[in-house]
């Protein structure tokens, strides 16, 4: 499986990563090698095998919809890069 530089650029965009121009080629090589390694799975017949998502086939536990935590907005926003009046600030989205 070979990934070229255009695909790396596309994947990086999907992953919201700005990638350095100089690094694109090395990522292309690394990703191709990793996908070659992964391709060993193709040799295995998995027809009829169920996918395993949890060792005990456990399902999500449900609980009563009650308040179990208290408001800590100020603590949590104290570690944010930029806030104002309890809101997180980002560059203008709508012109």
């Amino acid at each position: 499986m070979s990934i070229d530089v255009d695909e790396v650029t596309k994947i990086a965009k999907l992953a919201c990563l700005s990638v350095n121009e100089d690094d694109v080629q090395s990522y292309a090589t690394n990703l191709s090698n990793i996908l070659d390694l992964v391709a060993q799975m193709d040799e295995v017949d998995t027809s009829g095998v169920t996918p395993m998502s949890h060792p005990f086939d456990a399902v999500q536990r449900l609980r009563e919809d009650v308040v179990t935590d208290f408001d800590r907005r100020e603590d949590f926003q104290a570690i944010a890069p930029k806030t104002e009046d309890g809101l997180y600030l980002v560059p203008k989205v709508i012109e």
């Binding site: 992964v38 095998v49 169920t50 996918p51 395993m52």
Partner: peptide, 14 residues
């Protein structure tokens, strides 16, 4: 081709 296949192989390993 990838995640689902991997989760199936995972069952074989387990």
């Amino acid at each position: 081709a990838y995640y689902l296949k991997a989760q199936k192989c995972r069952h074989l390993i387990s």
